[in-house]
Design a protein around this nucleic acid. Structure first.
Lengths: 144, 144
DNA sequence: TTTTTCTCTAGAATAATTCTAATCTATTGA
DNA sequence: TCAATAGATTAGAATTATTCTAGAGAAAAA
């Protein structure tokens, strides 16, 4: 039900989380963090999150949404998944997992880590080390 | 050595390949196909291929390069690999293989299929079938 | 408080890609 | 060979995603 609760507690969770990441708990960062991290894991585009924040009555610019998403990503609170030219999602699930990408709808779904596994990984080229491995399983409507 | 050979033979290979794909062998498509498919496999961006074509004296617009790359991709002659927001490569290697992405330089390298393997793949969600699996191993300079 | 430092904003700028409408060219068939 | 036609190419405008800028605003430190 949750009608706008009288702002008694200033969203302690989000504030702690932001401070831990070395980010000032500003009004817009707190609001975005709440939308992103309270509740289930989610995949959002910057545009979607911007719309959501506005719909929730938070005044925030798109540039700030981009900034916040990148800051959260740099802080390890999220990760970015690029699926198509001009379409990237920010994923609140930073655990070990991969993705299904629905080519028809543009949606992204998690693949739990126990449902997929890499048997072998090549050595990183000289002078480099692996920072991440992304597996994207592209699926489309089964019409064959 | 190959100085501009007197246009004796009109690049039979490229023409045959285009016709097989149901594409008219026009001047620009032939030129682009030659740049892409004669010689080693390669990873190019639309911009790079456009510059190359111009440098080779072929008059072609960027829009046509995009069209051709997508047509070649649809015809199964290439595939597209998206590595970052706003950076996608077209890969002439359509065989089974995956990629290293160098986060520092933006370069893409092939990982031969025998150096990486997926032990298990999840079932595609209901009503869908897998059209491709992309594995991108992101590496960066080993400074640790 | 006051100062300092960081953040936010609107809007401009940039970059990648696609669209549009006019022009051109490869193919077809007479 | 040549005109008709279906398809391709073009420049530039339009779109979309993202980043930058410079001034105004807010959080932290003094």
């Amino acid at each position: 039900m949750e009608t706008k609760s009288p702002s008694r507690r200033p969203f302690t969770g989000a504030i702690v989380q932001l401070k831990a990441a070395g980010l000032r708990p500003t009004r817009q960062r707190i609001a975005l963090a709440r939308l992103l991290f309270e509740g289930e894991n989610r995949h959002v585009t910057a545009e979607e999150l911007h719309d959501e924040a506005r719909a929730a009555g938070v005044s925030v610019s798109l540039a700030t949404v981009y900034n916040a998403l990148h800051q959260f990503t740099d802080a390890g609170m999220m990760r970015e998944v690029v699926v198509e030219a001009g379409r990237s999602y920010f994923d609140t699930n930073t655990g070990d997992h991969h993705h299904f990408f629905h080519e028809d709808t543009g949606m992204l779904d998690d693949i739990p880590s126990d449902q997929i596994s890499l048997a072998s990984l090549p050595d990183a080229p000289d002078g480099t080390s692996v920072s991440r491995v992304d597996v994207i399983v592209r699926v489309s409507s089964a019409a064959k």
